[in-house]
């Protein structure tokens, strides 16, 4: 069962690790200083969350958070491809939309995890939600404001939503051995969480006059597999950068 638990926790942790990485790229390059700071602050939270998730496994005698983050084979990662996507030449519309779709998913996910039968996860979810509240507030307020501002802003957000929606959909890709996780009472089915997620984002998008259409199963080919160890085309360069220093002297302590 520990292998199944590891799949679940890594799916959660790896998303946080890479979204934190991508958000951190905005420091110094945001549209206004306040947003550099907001993205930096959210990036710190998410990176800290990744560490806390890995630590649950470490406490069971599995690798340390640093080993999980910096010393793993590509195929051992379980992140959704959404979080591996680059910042596309610093398109803030894309960054904001990803942040919105992702943090809505986190809200839903953590809310469900609070009731997890796996005690350490339930306790952690409770703690993380206290920080997540601000992520969600930030994302929501900005989508609401920009969605109803200028034509250009609206156009950019719609284009971002079109591009990102199928990726975000796959945040709820079924995990390997998910039926065992459900049976153990650790998590509800991913498909059910996805419905809750849609309920959360729909009214806000609608208010901002932003539309999405649910992808059909045969359209999802290019976006799936993240939870099963299939990496997006963006992973290699991302991970090379993340491990550049740690890999330069593997014996060293930093």
């Amino acid at each position: 069962m520990i292998e199944v638990l590891e799949i679940l926790i890594l799916s959660l942790a790896d998303d946080e690790l890479f979204i934190g990485h991508r958000h951190a790229e905005w420091i110094g390059l945001g549209p206004i200083l306040e947003e550099d700071i907001a993205f930096a602050s959210i990036a710190q939270d998410e990176t800290g969350h990744a560490q806390a998730y890995y630590q649950i496994l470490t406490d069971l005698g599995l690798p340390t958070p640093d080993e999980y983050a910096f010393k793993r084979e590509a195929s051992a990662f379980r992140s959704a491809h959404l979080v591996e996507l680059p910042n596309f030449e610093y398109d803030y519309g894309m960054a904001l939309m990803r942040h919105f779709l992702y943090d809505a998913a986190e809200q839903v996910r953590l809310d469900a995890l609070r009731k997890s039968a796996y005690e350490p996860l339930a306790g952690l979810a409770e703690r993380l939600l206290r920080e997540e509240k601000y992520h969600w507030l930030h994302a929501r307020v900005w989508i609401q404001r920009l969605g109803r501002s200028t034509e250009e802003a609206h156009h950019r957000l719609q284009a971002a939503l079109d591009q990102l929606f199928p990726y975000a959909w796959m945040l709820f890709e079924e995990m390997p051995h998910e039926e065992k996780m459900i049976e153990a009472g650790w998590v509800p089915p991913s498909a059910e969480l996805r419905m809750r997620w849609l309920e959360k984002i729909s009214p806000i998008l609608m208010e901002a006059n932003l539309a999405y259409s649910e992808p059909k199963a045969d359209e999802l080919q290019a976006f799936q597999g993240g939870r099963h160890g299939i990496r997006s085309p963006y992973f290699d360069s991302l991970y090379a950068e993340m491990t550049e220093v740690s890999a330069s002297d593997p014996e060293a302590e930093w």
């Binding site: 206004i32 200028t150 250009e152």
Partner: peptide, 10 residues
């Protein structure tokens, strides 16, 4: 340059 549209939107 990249952030101009955001500031205009605000």
């Amino acid at each position: 340059e990249k952030g101009r549209w955001v500031r205009e939107a605000l």
